[in-house]
């Protein structure tokens, strides 16, 4: 009689422990799936090596204080982080295009500022950065 009572008590504790453990697992699981997906959007970021190329070859015209009105309207690197992600992706795609096609920096500008000339490797580095980031950003909001 005494022994069966002890057994029952032990079984009750075990059941209770299982319920508690199960509850913990369930709560854990719930927190992982309910995480907000909106914050997954990849942010606009510039690595140091690309930033150096921008400063040296692009920023002179493509900044919000630029005297080059067309260059400024199309792209101001200092305002990139403030733009909506759709705009950022569009501009990154355009950066990759003009570099691949050799349209930027403009030939006329390079005649006056030969130091701004980019090597083939530098063009590839910056072009790849822009197109990779554009793809990652697009993917992150799809």
């Amino acid at each position: 009689m005494f022994r069966t009572q002890k057994c029952m008590k032990m079984r009750n504790y075990l059941v209770l422990a299982f319920i508690l453990l199960g509850g913990l697992f369930f709560m854990n699981f719930k927190t992982t799936v309910s995480e907000p997906s909106g914050s997954d959007a990849v942010a606009y970021e510039v690595p140091a090596d690309v930033q150096q190329l921008i400063d040296n070859s692009c920023y002179g015209c493509h900044n919000s204080d630029s005297k080059n009105l067309k260059g400024k309207k199309k792209l101001s690197f200092d305002k990139m982080a403030d733009l909506k992600i759709f705009k950022q992706i569009g501009k990154l795609e355009a950066i990759s295009d003009v570099l691949t096609e050799g349209d930027m920096p403009p030939k006329k500008f390079l005649q006056k500022m030969p130091d701004a000339k980019m090597s083939t490797e530098e063009i590839a580095l910056m072009g790849n950065w822009a197109s990779d980031l554009a793809k990652k950003m697009t993917h992150s909001i799809e």
């Binding site: 067309k70 759709f86 569009g90 795609e93 554009a134 793809k135 697009t138």
Partner: peptide
């Protein structure tokens, strides 16, 4: 592609918005 569409939409906004 979606990226190209965004590039063109931004380009249209700049060209038309700026009067070019």
């Amino acid at each position: 592609s979606k990226g190209e569409k965004l590039k063109y939409l931004d380009g249209m906004a700049v060209e038309v918005g700026d009067g070019q």
